[in-house]
Structures are given as structure tokens and as C-alpha cells.
Design a binder for these strands. Structure first.
Lengths: 101, 101
DNA sequence: GGCGTACATGAAAATATGTTCATGTATAAG
DNA sequence: CTTATACATGAACATATTTTCATGTACGCC
């Protein structure tokens, strides 16, 4: 009963919670799912598939970008979004892999 | 550009977000980390390691239990908590595996 | 039954998140 | 330089989550 302690350091814990919180939303999970399929997508393309208000989508994307989950590149009038780290996608696989859910 | 769609069904999306939200908190990630190490732990044991208010911990645990992330068994005065699904722990490995974080 | 320990619960307060709506900015085309 | 398109931003509001504090309940022991 002695050597029990939290193995993840505080900073990483907070970072993990921060990122997970960012993933934990139906619209954002969908965005990740789509970016997993297509490498990079414009806001309009995402919007067409997701059928959400433009500004709402934009807020979510900005949120995800701020948290380092997605990257952007502007190309003319369009802004392309892509996943910064494919490991993020594993999280969703994990969830899907959970038998009890 | 035609066959792009969200592969995860709506119900599962919401369930995933629900569970991820439940994981996405420093205290709760710590709880999962500890239960990964010890199989089952009482509230007092968790409290001793985590150094949080008893009632706060209890709220978090009830939350996690309601969402099916942990299970409980009472044994005399003590209540033991354990993870219902080891796949949950993978989520944390995923996070740790993310290079960009 | 009374007491202490272990844990749960509920309401209120503090804080964070999600959504909408109106407006702003960048770029390309004419 | 005007206009349309693509996207971002900010403030206001709605809703959800987190935390605290006070109190409640279950169990074992005397």
C-alpha cells in the first residue's frame, strides 16, 4: 500500500485533460473523424458534411487549433484544416474499442 | 470529394463524447491512472494519494460510476472502486503517445 | 443504542463551455 | 475599387461542469 502514486506528472495531466476536453464533443469528434479520412479539408467542406452554422464550426475549429489538435494553411480564399497528430485519432478508436460502451 | 461522411454514428459519437468528457479532468485522469496500477482502491486510499476534499472526490467517483467508467463494491465500511474497462486506460497512453503535446 | 469511521448527497456558488447573432477581415474576380 | 465568397471574431446569452459546504447514511464496534 506504500508506493502508490500518480504516474503522470501534473503538467501532463492538465495537458491531457485539456486535449481530451477538446476532443470530447460530438461536432469535434466528427471533425477529427473526417480529417482522418481526408488529410485536409476546408471549412466549407466540413460545413457541408456536418451541417452546422458556419460561425459555430469556426469557433470549434479555432478552439481545436488553439489547443494544438489541428493545423491550418490558407490557400487563396480557403483555409485548410488538418490533424496535427494522428495519435489523436487513436483516442476515438480506444473509445470504440471499449466493450462496455 | 463526393463520398465524405462521418463514419461514427451519432449515438456512438455522443457516447464517445460523454465518456471522453468524463475522462477529461486532471483528478479523474489521476484516478484512472491509480486504478490502472492497483485494480481496486477505496475512496480513502484515493484520497490519501490525490489530496483532494473527500466530497469532491466522491462527486468525481459518482460521476465516473454513473458514466460506467468505474465499478464499486462495498466491503464493510469501505467502498472499493475499480475500472470497468481497461480500454479506458489506453486513452491515457494515447495522450502520452501524442508527440505534439 | 451511541459513537466513530468511511463515504454519499444536495444545494449553492464559482467557473467554464457551447451557441447564436451580428459584424469584421482576407482574398479573388470583375 | 466594388463585390462576392470564405472564414474569423466578439459579445451576449444559455447551459454545463466544478467546487464547496453542510448534512446524511451505512457500517462496525463498544
Amino acid at each position: 500500500m506504500s508506493t502508490l502514486k500518480v504516474r503522470v506528472e501534473q503538467k501532463k495531466l492538465e495537458r491531457a485533460a485539456y486535449v481530451l476536453k477538446c476532443v470530447a464533443h460530438p461536432v469535434r469528434i466528427s471533425i477529427i473523424d473526417l480529417l482522418e479520412q481526408r488529410e485536409r479539408l476546408t471549412v466549407s467542406q466540413l460545413q457541408e458534411v456536418l451541417q452546422v452554422e458556419q460561425s459555430l464550426l469556426s469557433h470549434h475549429l479555432t478552439n481545436m487549433r488553439d489547443k494544438g489538435v489541428v493545423d491550418t494553411q490558407r490557400q487563396g480564399k480557403h483555409v485548410y484544416y488538418s490533424l496535427t497528430d494522428s495519435a489523436i485519432t487513436n483516442i476515438i478508436s480506444c473509445i470504440n474499442g471499449c466493450k462496455n460502451f
